[in-house]
C-alpha cells in the first residue's frame, strides 16, 4: 500500500520544503518515496502543488484523482482546488488564512472566503483547520507555516510518520539556528 499526500498552496509559501521534509523522514524509515513538484513559471504567485507518494507500489510520482489520503493545504482556496484528488473519507489539513491574488482586485473572480470555508466543512468529514495567523503571532514568525501544518498532519495520524521522524528530518535539512523555532512550530496546536 502507498500513502498519497498532496501539498498545495501559493508560490513562495514553502510547500516544496514541506514535501522534502516528509520525504526525508520517510527515507529515514526506509520507505520508498516519489514526489512531483510545480517548478517554474507558476511559482510567481501561482497555485502550486506537490504530489508525495510513500511506499513501494507507487509506479510514478503523480497520483490519480480520488486517491490522496491527505491534502495538506497552505491556503483554503487551494485546498478546494485540489479536493478532486482526495479519496472518499480522506483527510484535509488546511491553513485558514486566505491569500487573495491581485487578479481578485483587478477584474478577476472575487475571493469568496465564506463560500470556500463552508464548502470544505460540508465536503470533508475529516477536516483539520489550522489558524495560521494565531500560530504566527504565538510563534513570533510567519515563516514556519509549513512546519506548523506538518505538525497538525502528524497529529491527525495521516502521514504514517511520527513527530520524532519529522524532527529528525528538520535537523537534517535546516541550519541549527532555525531548530528551536521549528521545534516549537512542529509542536504548536
Amino acid at each position: 500500500m502507498s500513502t498519497n499526500i498532496i501539498l498545495c498552496g501559493v508560490g513562495g509559501q514553502g510547500t516544496i520544503l514541506a514535501s522534502k521534509l516528509i520525504a526525508s523522514a520517510a527515507m529515514a524509515r526506509d520507505v520508498a518515496v516519489k514526489t512531483a513538484e510545480t517548478i517554474g513559471m507558476a511559482q510567481r504567485g501561482g497555485s502550486v502543488f506537490s504530489h508525495v507518494r510513500l511506499g513501494e507500489d507507487a509506479a510514478c510520482p503523480l497520483m490519480a484523482r480520488g486517491s490522496a489520503d491527505l491534502v495538506l493545504a497552505f491556503e483554503p482556496a487551494e485546498a478546494v482546488r485540489q479536493l478532486p484528488f482526495l479519496k472518499p473519507g480522506g483527510c484535509v489539513v488546511t491553513s485558514t488564512r486566505p491569500v487573495v491574488p491581485v487578479s481578485a482586485m483587478t477584474g478577476g473572480p472575487a475571493y469568496d472566503y465564506e463560500g470556500i470555508m463552508e464548502y470544505l466543512k460540508a465536503k470533508v468529514s475529516n477536516l483539520v483547520l489550522v489558524d495560521s495567523d494565531r500560530a504566527a503571532a504565538e510563534l513570533g514568525s510567519a515563516k514556519c507555516l509549513n512546519v506548523v501544518l506538518l505538525g497538525a498532519a502528524v497529529r491527525a495520524g495521516e502521514l504514517g510518520l511520527s513527530e520524532g521522524d519529522i524532527l529528525a528530518a528538520l535537523h537534517e535539512r535546516l541550519p541549527e539556528k532555525l531548530w528551536e523555532l521549528n521545534e516549537r512550530a512542529l509542536a504548536w496546536a
Partner: peptide
C-alpha cells in the same frame, strides 16, 4: 460537484 468559484492565480510580477 458544486465547488465555489475559486480565485485565479496567474503568475504575477513579485
Amino acid at each position: 460537484g458544486d465547488a465555489p468559484t475559486l480565485p485565479v492565480r496567474p503568475p504575477v510580477l513579485c
